[in-house]
Amino acid sequence: MVARGICKRFGRGATSEMVLNRTDFDAHAGEMTFLVGPSGCGKTTLISILSAMLRADEGDATVFGADLKALSGRALSRFRGETVGFVFQQFNLLPALDAAENAAVPLIAHGMATGRARRRASELLDRLGLAESLKKFPRELSGGQQQRVAIARALVHDPKLIVCDEPTASLDGASGHAVMNILRSLAVRPDRAAIVVTHDDRIFQFADRIAFMADGRVVRTEKRPFEEMH
Rank of each mutant, 00 (worst) to 15 (best):
S175G: 01
R224D: 00
S185P: 06
M213I: 09
V218P: 09
R189N: 11
T198W: 07
A169N: 04
S185A: 11
M180V: 08
D165H: 06
T221G: 05
E228P: 03
V179A: 03
V218C: 08
F226C: 05
D215T: 05
D200E: 09
M213D: 05
H177S: 08
V196S: 07
R189I: 09
V197L: 10
I182Y: 06
P190H: 04
I182Q: 11
S175W: 03
T168S: 02
E222I: 13
D200V: 10
T198V: 08
D201K: 14
V188W: 11
H177C: 02
E222H: 11
M213F: 05
M213W: 07
M180H: 03
R224P: 02
F204L: 14
A214W: 02
D201A: 13
L171Y: 01
R184F: 09
V218M: 09
A169K: 05
A211I: 00
V219L: 04
F226V: 11
R220K: 13
P167K: 04
R217V: 04
F226R: 08
I182R: 05
M213H: 09
F212S: 13
E166M: 01
D200H: 10
A207D: 04
Q205E: 14
E166H: 01
A207G: 05
R189G: 10
H199C: 00
V196K: 05
R209C: 12
F206P: 06
L186V: 13
S170T: 14
L186R: 05
S170F: 03
D215R: 12
D191N: 08
E227A: 09
P190A: 03
V196R: 06
T168F: 01
L186K: 03
A207F: 07
V188R: 03
A211V: 02
A193T: 15
A187G: 10
R192D: 15
H199A: 00
S170K: 08
M229E: 15
A178I: 03
Q205H: 15
A169S: 09
A194E: 10
T221Q: 09
D172R: 07
M229V: 15
R202G: 13
H177W: 06
R224Q: 04
S185L: 07
A193P: 14
A214H: 09
H177P: 01
F204R: 12
E222D: 14
A193Q: 14
L186I: 13
M229Y: 14
I182N: 02
V188F: 11
A194H: 03
R202T: 13
H177R: 06
V219S: 04
A193F: 15
L183Y: 07
D201W: 09
R202P: 10
R189C: 10
P190M: 04
V179P: 00
V197K: 10
G176W: 00
D172S: 10
R220D: 07
V197A: 10
D165G: 06
F204K: 11
G216I: 12
N181P: 01
F212H: 15
F212P: 05
R209D: 06
L186M: 15
D165A: 00
A178R: 13
I210R: 11
